[in-house]
Simulated scan of single mutants.
Amino acid sequence: MARTKEFDPDAALQAAVELFWERGYEATSMADLTERLGLGRASLYATFGSKHELFLRSLDRYRENTDATLLTELSQPGPALAAVRGVVRRFADEALREQRLRGCLVTNTATELAAHDRDAARRVRASWDYLETLTAGALTRAQAQGELGPEKEPQALARLLLTVMQGIRVVGKAGDDPRRITDATRLALSLLD
């Protein structure tokens, strides 16, 4: 007879998300994971596989949560341009607050692993593709609603904003001069006028 799990795998996965988000992949040891998740190594391996597999599942969970927020923000009815501006400003605000020390798990993964980890890179690209697609869709709606000039290129603007938002997150982690973030945000948003 198989033993039933004596822990909540969903809660354990969320704890892993938080730990990888705080420390990164390389700086998180198996001992750190077993301690934070409250699991023995055998249970951790049996439930989640290797550290790498757990990291990828954690990254997927993080993306599910952030993608749902972005979908809500950028797909709401009403003025679409205000929604795009709101998302860019939120990224900037997060980079200027205490969360800046953790940054974004997707952006952190891009800088730590994407160059040599194909699975991580694929997830980073998927996340950025999603943000770009949602942003381009909102900008296209803004154009159709007369909020954005007909000479503007929604797809190109979405790519620019994606790049600015990801850059804001990287610069925010260093946190040495908030003007870098505020100036970049202001100038990027001025392109929507």
Rank of each mutant, 00 (worst) to 15 (best):
S43M: 08
R141Y: 12
K51N: 08
T135C: 04
L162N: 12
S50Q: 07
L96W: 06
S50W: 00
R159Q: 13
A80H: 07
D32A: 00
D129V: 04
E53M: 09
D129S: 07
L134R: 11
L101R: 15
L113I: 10
R100I: 03
W128A: 12
L71D: 12
C104D: 13
A114E: 10
F91R: 15
A46C: 07
H116W: 15
E112G: 06
A121L: 09
E26T: 13
D119W: 01
Y62T: 06
A115N: 06
A156M: 12
D32N: 05
V106P: 00
P150Y: 11
E147A: 08
G49Y: 09
Q99K: 14
L101M: 14
D67M: 08
L44D: 00
V106H: 03
L37R: 00
R102E: 04
D119N: 09
L101K: 15
Y62G: 03
A46R: 14
L74Y: 07
A158Y: 02
A27N: 10
L33F: 01
S29C: 00
T133K: 10
G86M: 13
Y45F: 13
P79E: 14
V88G: 03
S58P: 04
G40L: 10
R57T: 05
L59V: 06
Q76W: 05
G149T: 11
A83L: 04
R122P: 01
A158H: 05
P154F: 01
A46L: 15
T47R: 08
A95T: 07
L81G: 04
A114I: 01
T47N: 05
V124N: 01
T140F: 06
D67F: 10
S75C: 07
T111I: 05
A120H: 05
A110K: 03
L44F: 03
V106L: 02
S75N: 09
E35R: 15
R100N: 01
P79F: 14
V88A: 11
Q155P: 03
A156I: 11
D93N: 12
W128G: 08
E132N: 11
F55Y: 13
R122G: 06
A68E: 15
H116N: 03
P79H: 15
G103L: 10
L101D: 08
R97A: 15
D60V: 01
F48I: 01
L74C: 06
D119K: 02
E35L: 11
L161Y: 09
Q145P: 05
R125G: 03
F55M: 02
E153G: 08
A110W: 10
L101T: 15
E53T: 13
L131G: 10
T109R: 00
P150G: 04
T140V: 12
G137Y: 04
A46K: 13
Q145I: 10
V88C: 05
V124A: 01
T69Y: 15
T133A: 10
Y25L: 00
A158T: 07
E147Q: 13
R97P: 00
T133D: 15
K152M: 10
P79W: 11
R41M: 12
L101P: 03
R118M: 06
